[in-house]
Amino acid sequence: MDDLPALEKDAAERIVREVDFQHRLIAGYVHERAGMMQLALYSLEEVFALLNTAFPQINLGELERWIRTVIGDTALADRVRETVALSENRHQSISRIRDLVGLRLVQCRKACALYTAF
């Protein structure tokens, strides 16, 4: 996890930015009573939030593509692909990708000195 390459401020700002409508990522989550919540995700932080819900509904191949082509983080996209290939089940994939994305956000926030934004 900690071999994601460090980031310069410019790259970090690009990775944490909110994307526009055309580049949103459709995903969702499920709760056994409240039902199915479909969502448009507009930032990597929102992806991370979704991956922290109990039963995230997200196309992991599409997530990899989105991170690569929309967010522009090739290193993270490569690690997402690798993680999916190496995981034994979906729960494992989701947990590992969540940690990867979380780590990336921490790196970005450090690079941008954005901690106070919480």
Binding site: H31, E45, R98
Partner: peptide, 28 residues
């Protein structure tokens, strides 16, 4: 209960993202 407690999901999302990043920091 149920929907009334979850409908304002954007807060939840952002809040959870903040938590999760915090948890990652705690893990580190």
């Amino acid at each position: 209960s149920c929907k009334e407690t979850g409908f304002y999901q954007f807060y939840k999302l952002r809040h959870m993202a903040a938590n999760a990043v915090g948890n990652t920091i705690a893990f580190l």
